[in-house]
Design a protein around this nucleic acid. Sequence first.
DNA 1: CTGATTTTAGACCTGCAGTTCAAGAATTCG
DNA 2: CGAATTCTTGAACTGCAGGTCTAAAATCAG
Lengths: 191, 191
Amino acid sequence: MGRPKSFEPDVVIAQAMETFWTKGYADTSPADLAEATGIGKGSLYHSFGSKRELFARALDLYDRTAAEVTEEFLARPGTTKERIRAYFVLLVDMDLDGPVRRGCLAQNTVSELGRRDEQATRAVRRMEERMIGLFTARLQQGQRDGDIDRALDARAQALFLQTALAGLRVMAKTFDRPVLHQIIDTTLAGL
Amino acid sequence: MGRPKSFEPDVVIAQAMETFWTKGYADTSPADLAEATGIGKGSLYHSFGSKRELFARALDLYDRTAAEVTEEFLARPGTTKERIRAYFVLLVDMDLDGPVRRGCLAQNTVSELGRRDEQATRAVRRMEERMIGLFTARLQQGQRDGDIDRALDARAQALFLQTALAGLRVMAKTFDRPVLHQIIDTTLAGL
DNA sequence: CTGATTTTAGACCTGCAGTTCAAGAATTCG
DNA sequence: CGAATTCTTGAACTGCAGGTCTAAAATCAG
């Protein structure tokens, strides 16, 4: 019983995620969150406890969404190399198409909070492991399909891909599309 | 005439740089800077104008120092691949050896301030271009020396190396030494 | 030594971030 | 319908970030 919530928590978390992603953690004030979600500050605190806790929920949503998109995208028809290339291009282009180059929320988080927030660091580490797992699986599938060399160490290559992707998303903050696409080509030349 | 400064500006800027690097821009308060430099807040503002301006000076010092170290390190005896490998290992190990994993100040800056501070973005872009220039030069030297394939596009490869290095420094926030060294090997396998 | 000039340092100021609170509103149960 | 419960909201609170200011201190020119 009691008065029912006037909002869908998942929707609010998604809106908070967008705000944190666009502005960064420190630069997002409770007032910003209230405006972005259309909910009073008090309600936010009532429902989510603190800015930091709401951020944790947002980060978790980011994780699940990213994993879903990645998995789906890598599974579409095409060779392993084609799919990975398309995925890298997708992410870089999304960054460049937005009004601000917000990069990857996970990377931004570890960069902004990693030094003083162990929980944030662990969360990002989990996401990275997950991505590496997805890359590994796709590479192994490629080995079964015959479009990836059987001698390749899939796990090592997946670690490299995750690193290259992280680097690309850093470079996407300062460089432009043609350069970034060229880097993607160089990165994947060995596959 | 007038009362002479009681400190060496370059020393103060270096101390400020360390603090910004370790704690991040937003998390460094004027009080922190006063403590780190041993100078009163008032004096800092008198000499440097604002926190943001002092940061710009710190970032500039970082740039010059980094360029110097890189150039010197890549020029030491050894093949191109050996020198680049040693350089990557150096940076990763330095990150891991410190009490906090502070990463690269330039990357941290573009991540924290890039969205709202064009000047910071441009400064980081300049540093990246500089690094790419150094990598390009070293690769071209390798081509003259005969330890790098003449057919290689040095500029494209340098862009890739800068990207990979950026990625490594992101990964160095969450992963441990053996993994990072393995990634370095994978990254440089093609050279 | 005096006056002009520049630096020093910490007290002081302003605004806002992050959070709590109080009073009212919407719901279920009996 | 009244009681119990949960949610809503803007006002109110606390602390500190970032910056200014003032009075004293240190120098040099004359």
